[in-house]
Simulated assay, not measured.
Amino acid sequence: MIKFTGKLALGLATVVAAVGLSAAPASAVPTNCHAGTDGGNWAYAICTAGYGQYRVWIDCWNDNGRKTTLYGTWMDRASGDGQSVRHCNATYPIRENYGYHVQ
């Protein structure tokens, strides 16, 4: 049988508490985000606060009435305020809706 002394138990409790307090919240996501476009066949997303990742999505149509959703690169908020950008392609050249995802 293992016996814990008061000092050992207190030391273990301190380590457990310190580890628990240093972890980032699991629900942390980027904030202060918006998506936009200049009116062309592309869109961008940017987030300027919070933690985690974000990316743009864009709905693109072709002349036959078919739609596809394309996605920009996931951007890491920790590395700055870069834009996630995506263009419609030659097969689906007409931009319609756009927005952003966070995780």
Rank of each mutant, 00 (worst) to 15 (best):
P30Y: 02
G65S: 13
A78I: 10
T69G: 04
L21E: 00
V56N: 04
A78D: 11
K7W: 10
G50M: 09
M1Q: 10
D59L: 11
A18L: 15
V29L: 11
G39S: 12
M75P: 02
G99L: 03
C47A: 09
A78P: 00
A24C: 11
Q83H: 08
H87E: 09
Q83R: 13
T73H: 04
I94N: 06
G39W: 08
S84R: 07
G82D: 14
R77L: 13
Y100R: 06
T48E: 14
W42C: 02
T69I: 12
I2A: 07
H87S: 14
R95W: 06
A43H: 02
S27C: 02
S79I: 09
A90M: 07
P93A: 10
V85L: 08
R55Q: 15
D38S: 13
G40I: 05
K7Y: 03
V102K: 13
A18S: 12
W74F: 08
N64K: 15
G39I: 08
G52E: 06
I2V: 14
T73G: 01
I94K: 05
R55F: 12
T5S: 15
Q103E: 12
A23C: 00
S79K: 10
V16Y: 02
G50R: 09
W61A: 12
G65L: 12
R86V: 15
F4G: 03
Y100V: 06
T5M: 01
C47H: 03
H87W: 15
C88A: 04
L8Q: 15
G11F: 12
A13T: 11
I2E: 07
G40R: 10
Q53C: 00
L8C: 00
G36C: 01
R77Y: 11
N89K: 09
P25F: 02
G52T: 04
V19C: 07
Y98T: 03
A18R: 03
V56Y: 01
A35V: 00
L70F: 11
T91D: 08
V15C: 03
P30W: 04
N62R: 10
V102C: 04
H34C: 01
A49N: 14
L70Y: 05
M1Y: 09
T14L: 15
K67M: 14
A9H: 01
V16H: 00
L21R: 01
W74P: 07
